[in-house]
Simulated scan of single mutants.
Amino acid sequence: MTSRRRFLAALGTTVTGIALPGCGYYPGGGDIRWREESIGGLSWAEDMGVTGETLYTVRSSGMSYDIDTETWVDGAEVVAYDTAHGRERFTEQFDRPAGAVALGDGGAAVALVEADTQSTPVVRFGPDGQMWETTVDGGVEALAVADERVYAVTADGALAVCADGSERWRVDLEPELGSDRGGFGPTVAASAEMVVCWVGGSVVCFDPDGTRRWNRSTVNARRLSIVDGEVFALAGHGLTTLEGDTGETRWISSDRVASFAVTTDAIYCRISLDVVAFDRSGARQWATSDDSGAGRNRAERDSTDYLDRVAADDRGVFVESDSGLTALATDDGSHRWTVEYDDIKAGPFLVDDGVLVVSEQGATCHVP
């Protein structure tokens, strides 16, 4: 007997939520909305992310043949795909590698490596391709994208913001690069309301006009995120949540958090091989290793290891497991469904039509 998921995979067509003619079937969780196998060649891309209705992929460096000059060049490549069906939106190739990459609100950006480090080209992309290019003084260590802007942390310890093809403002960061106590390189995150960067052992927050809002020298971060006006700083010791207005600590995870996802009501963390849910104040709600709970299947959950990126919204919690792509219920962490994959290259990513993963089979969008 053929399962309904294998049946739909064999069809290789889009499932829109309308019953298939004559069979009375409606798609359920984990079923395939669409699959685009031509995207499978993107296994070499170092950075992938979804923003809006676009999947952006970036290869920082790779050899390609320039037909105009009839020469081989080593440069970056940015390829974007429509998340509604997986077909390519655009490809942009460069004759220089990318030293820093940002995938964020409204698009992507790359900082190209120049032999002369006195300045760095920064290119901003939207869903239809390149939007603008400008030059930032000095080398660029980290980038963030938000609200049609690009924020760059420079090698000489400054934060520069660019928009519409020009640099709008620049502020010096204190302490400067090189005094880093945490063992991580600089990182930056931005939203329409603020920009935060970690450099030299401090998390520093600025208003969009460059006014310094606060500085926290006791918080380390290898990754920063801004959600609903709160700052999430992920470091080797765990996850710290800070008030966006003041920088005051809301809560600190006592466990080593590998990845996390934030929704309106909860924070879902992968801790070791477990998924643990907290409310937004830091109170623990459930874990996949819990022994009891409404609707939980302990035998199935105890045999599952959760390995990589977590994604979540009101439709569920989605995470790569040792079996493939697994969906959990938001209220109690009970197992909802698993689709087998041998090797997930990127994702899961949440899109309008479902849950997107990139694997050896290409890009596949599953019903949530």
Results as ranks from 00 to 15, higher is better:
188 V>H: 06
368 P>R: 14
29 G>S: 12
360 E>Q: 12
4 R>F: 07
124 R>A: 13
279 D>A: 13
297 N>M: 00
286 W>Y: 14
126 G>H: 07
260 F>K: 07
73 V>W: 02
248 E>K: 13
72 W>L: 12
140 V>R: 08
160 A>T: 13
252 I>W: 07
260 F>A: 06
240 T>R: 09
220 N>M: 05
257 V>F: 07
26 Y>P: 00
182 G>H: 04
51 T>S: 15
188 V>C: 13
153 V>R: 07
169 W>Y: 11
173 L>D: 10
151 Y>K: 01
183 G>L: 03
44 W>D: 13
53 E>F: 03
123 V>Q: 09
252 I>Y: 11
274 D>F: 05
121 P>S: 09
366 H>I: 01
4 R>P: 06
263 T>M: 02
344 I>A: 08
301 R>D: 10
90 F>N: 04
159 L>Q: 12
7 F>K: 03
205 C>K: 01
220 N>E: 03
222 R>D: 06
276 V>P: 09
180 D>R: 07
365 C>K: 03
39 I>V: 08
73 V>C: 05
97 P>E: 13
324 G>A: 05
155 A>N: 08
138 G>R: 07
265 D>G: 14
324 G>E: 03
182 G>M: 03
227 V>Q: 12
278 F>C: 08
189 A>G: 04
337 W>G: 01
91 T>H: 00
110 V>N: 08
181 R>Y: 12
49 G>D: 09
34 W>K: 06
256 R>L: 04
246 T>Y: 09
331 D>Y: 14
196 V>D: 05
188 V>P: 11
108 A>R: 02
262 V>R: 01
344 I>V: 13
